[in-house]
Amino acid sequence: MIEEILATHELKLVTEDDVMAVRRRVREIAEMRKFDTFAIAAITTATSELARNVVVHGRGGTAKIEEISDGLRAGIRVVFTDEGPGIPDIARVMSGGYSTARSMGLGLSGSKRLVDDFDLESQVGVGTRVTVTKWKRF
């Protein structure tokens, strides 16, 4: 089915307060769209992990929250963008075994397991973009 963006919210991610604000916003949207409690916890937690990464490792950035629909189900997509140092070894980070950056490995690999779609683009010296999508279940 054809995917459609119903609404977009762009939020900055610089401080810890911003992390809280983004994750609260995601929860509100998921609740408004009547996601079940497990799906709400999943997307809110993934948002928390990824937003924290942007603030802690990416030197700040943005979160773009999109309310989407494929005609049958509602969905939430969040795009986290930073212009930080980038990730040199994506495979290693995604395996969850990254120890130099505090909690980064678990944050990324863990978030991936909480969402339906996960996309990570990163270039050393340019920045990182993580896109996650969670669909409401039947």
Binding site: F38, A41, T45, L106, G110, R113
Partner: peptide, 14 residues
């Protein structure tokens, strides 16, 4: 711990 919190932690591998 709430059910959805337990499920989320386990799914993350925690």
């Amino acid at each position: 711990m709430r059910p959805e919190v337990a499920a989320t932690l386990i799914r993350m591998g925690y």
